[in-house]
Write a protein that binds this DNA or RNA. Sequence first.
DNA 1: GAATAGTTTAACCATACGGTTAACAACAAT
DNA 2: ATTGTTGTTAACCGTATGGTTAAACTATTC
Lengths: 206, 206
Amino acid sequence: MINNSVLETEAENKIKEAARKIFHRRGFDGARMQEIADEAQINKAMLHYYFRSKDKLFEAVFKEAAMKLFPVVILIIESDLDVDEKIKKLIHNYIDFIIDNPYVPGFVLHELTQNPERMKHFVASNVLMRPQKFFSQIQEGIDSGKYIPIAPLQLMVTIVASCIFPFVAKPMLHTLFGLDQDDFGEFIEQRKEQMTQFILNGLYKK
Amino acid sequence: MINNSVLETEAENKIKEAARKIFHRRGFDGARMQEIADEAQINKAMLHYYFRSKDKLFEAVFKEAAMKLFPVVILIIESDLDVDEKIKKLIHNYIDFIIDNPYVPGFVLHELTQNPERMKHFVASNVLMRPQKFFSQIQEGIDSGKYIPIAPLQLMVTIVASCIFPFVAKPMLHTLFGLDQDDFGEFIEQRKEQMTQFILNGLYKK
DNA sequence: GAATAGTTTAACCATACGGTTAACAACAAT
DNA sequence: ATTGTTGTTAACCGTATGGTTAAACTATTC
């Protein structure tokens, strides 16, 4: 039994990729093991052979999604850039990330609402948010009269909200404002620069 | 068969209220007809007696939720107020609405993502978004040099995002920043005024 | 090439689920 | 009193679902 590790991980990866696709699209409750098996073109029993249960398989997918979702923010927030650069980079990089992973934010947010306890299981060991530096930078700007008075957390939530929300609300934009696929793409592309300007302008005092 | 209309609607309302609670909490896929029946303290067959199927019952709940979610925005957007007042009122009223219906936005957004077609069935006849006036007001302000150049839709999405997102991301705020129930309440209360100031400041040119 | 360990499959199992039914209760109309 | 209508219940039905099993297949080791 030398090197089945190649085939082994091949099957394992096929399953994981299929599971990602289905779980992201349907959520935990909506996903069916059979559908995942079909997507992976593999026998359903194999899902249980490699991952013991639906929960375990989901946990793997969820963990991966969350581990991708947060670091983008964290790395930039904790960097040595100044506030303007952080905000600009944060918005651009985060939107780019979501363009490549459009289902991830909605998936993570929904599953976190369904089961908030899940968060604790892996956050502590995997995601450590240390926004102190960023928050201090904001506070200094406020104290020096450069920025309007705003709670740093309020600002940060607004930035993240601005990036994530359009993707979560995509069907609304489609039906309410008639944005089709192409329009939406343009809207998002435009959003990167315009949100950067808007938020920076909102931060600076007149 | 004089007046069972009282009792009739009593049972019907008990069911609808229970269904609202469960559907909002668990989503369509996660909700069980038995759980709704238990919540309403009523026999499961009654659910099918008054509403024919799970889909029909869900449709009633969803319609109601969506019909509450949009008009708050629409009425203010279409009013005769000036831009500053519209933005202020929009943020305050919308956040107040979500405080009273905290599960509604996440519920509607998620179910709309699961089944975007649902939107079309009732939007055309029930929700008509006419943001032209608001958009013109913004455009005028931009043309006159009062506002920074921003696509009105970008602004509007940002405002709505700022109101809704904190509630959808509540578990994240809890785990990542340690906001407990009370902290969250304060955060939201503070947000009403600070977001108003921040967004208005972002709109006006220096 | 037999033995052994890992992999894959079809068939199966128990349960949970949405939905139905048939009998019954309450009560108004005749 | 009888009939008909509406509301209510427990028991039931067919199916879909997550999960298991035992046998077949593959490949590696000796």
